[in-house]
Design a protein around this nucleic acid. Sequence first.
RNA 1: GCCCAUGUAGCUCAGUGGUAGAGCACUCCCUUGGUAAGGGAGAGGCCAUGAGUUCAAUCCUCAUCAUGGGCACCA
Length: 644
Amino acid sequence: MADIELILPDGARRAAPAGCDGAAFKQAVAVKVDGELRDLDSRLPDGGKVAFITRKDDEALELIRHDLAHVMAQAVAELHPTAQPTIGPVIADGFFYDFHHPAGFTEEDLAKIEARMRELVAAAIPIRREVWERDEAKAYFQKRGEPFKAELVDAIPEGEEVSVYRQGDFLDLCRGPHMPTTRHAGTAFKLTAVAGSYWRGDAQGEKLQRIYGTAWRSDAELKEHLTRLEEAKRRDHRLLGPRMGLFHLQDEAAGSVFWHPQGWTLYRGLANYMRARLAAAGYLEVRTPQLISRSLWEKSGHWAKFRANMYLVENEEGVADYAKDPEHAAVMGLKPMNCPGHVMIFAQGSKSYRDLPLRYAEFGACHRCEPRGALHGVMRVRAFTQDDGHIFCSLDQIVDETVAFVKLLDVVYRDLGFADYTVRYADRPALRAGTDAQWDEAERQLTQACERAGIGYEPNPGDGAFYGPKLEFVLRDTIGREWQCGTLQVDLVLPGSLGASYTDAAGQRQTPVLLHRAVLGSFERFIGILIENCDGHLPLWLADPQVTVATIVSEADGHARAAAAAFERAGLRAALDLRNEKINYKVREHSAAKAPVIAVVGKSERDAGTVTLRRLGSRETSTLTVEEAAAMLGAEARPPHLSA
RNA sequence: GCCCAUGUAGCUCAGUGGUAGAGCACUCCCUUGGUAAGGGAGAGGCCAUGAGUUCAAUCCUCAUCAUGGGCACCA
């Protein structure tokens, strides 16, 4: 029998006799054997390499959270005996546990559950692993009236051990590992929320109740985390947007944005920038109808696959029709997507392979009847405008076009301050149009394009559009939630169903491939993320106003007006604040509204023909002549596509 | 759509079974003051909407709408 090489928490190495376990080492809460975490009392392998994990290690965080999920389940089992535990994984910053409990949990319940958890932790209940026979485990959970756990036993792959963890009277099916007692989990935790969820994430399936908790190694870490959340809240676009005078939302138009003058300037600035980038990339801008008859939506497949999300509008006859016979009424659909319109443009006249690739772009205003619970500020709305585009090409152009798109997207994202974004590859969904052969081809081409473009991606199985696989370009908001913004979708189906074709070099009729693509995704969502990403410090070229001229005394009003006029001559958006207020007050107010540059003007500036500039986020000031300031800021405010 | 919470002045929030309060913002007056809140006065609310319980409802009950956090769905 070979000795075991132990790696102690301080890094020292030591040999231990074969056959021992880790329990002798007081500080340890688990062991890591050849890179794999295990229970402290598991038998150590002969000749293996073993590291001890203490509560201070990063790995311990996962154990703490996992143990607390079990402690929570135990507390719930005691307080709500009819609630069935289902699954309880570790997530970022904490854990959750899903229970089958139709009566639901209220926030008062949470407080009681948390109090009981603290008692269970204090009681230092030993947590022990047991390996059971598969049938035995299944029978046990079935007998206990826990069919969800029984189903989970079935889901464990053949050949894997079925392990059960026992803490006191509480028994839970679990892969582990766990720490030796409940006390090791510590007290730096907090139950944060109760939410509904679904068994196996299936909305058709059983409804469950989820309780979320956050957990850390120490109270200090917990407090830090809560502070971080508080700070993140201050960057929320729903708070900053109205405060910056960009937009507002109101009940009567749930899911639509009221863009105010300054916000609309930002929106237009972004649109004009995109126009320039798209034109340079060979796109032709078009405009297609908002309302299209259901007959076209039927042909495109949207009627079958997307109607639940479409707003329908009756025309003269349709009003009566629709009430009587909705299935056959002559109705118009407000467009939820722009693709059919673009295909209609392509399909006019006859096209040759020489016309390909043909790239149409539209800032297409779409409406989708989104579920109530999905709405979120300007990030998820019912009326939004996509920077949409459709590329008609041949099969062998897919890769080139995709590579070019990825390049365009990368330039735009960098210009806007997003060097970091995640790419996902979503392949065929269960509900889809087209043949398997078409999907095979589309997925193959897209995979190849990713390789050529040199982008790494995470797989997102089964999440493609109904007509084709897609790349998703994902950005994060201030509290780390992910939002799909850019996208590219390979579609071998829609052009055919809408009758689009071209003549190839051999004189044969071919159906073009359609690439659906958007860089920003929607202006609404992208601007929401942009605001949060820069904490309201918009790049100068998008901000409105760009310079705020504020006076100290009214004797400087004339000079302030002249300075503002000079800024405007330099192409800048200037605002003027001549109010009878102290400069402290003005600076405070404009800073809170995220004015990027405040140009302060008093008697000395008036006499010297200067302004004193103060930048957002800085207390430093610099005084320069009006002409210098105008030239400097004018150059700074040039949009990226116009800069050298 | 599902679960939990919330909805009181333009905003942020107190509050009570007997038809309401603060701070900021707004209006007016005083103040002309060098880089994150100068002082005073005034005006402003069907307490989300609709039913019910009650002698009496902003408060209790139910429903609806909306918002927030999740789930599901999605740009």
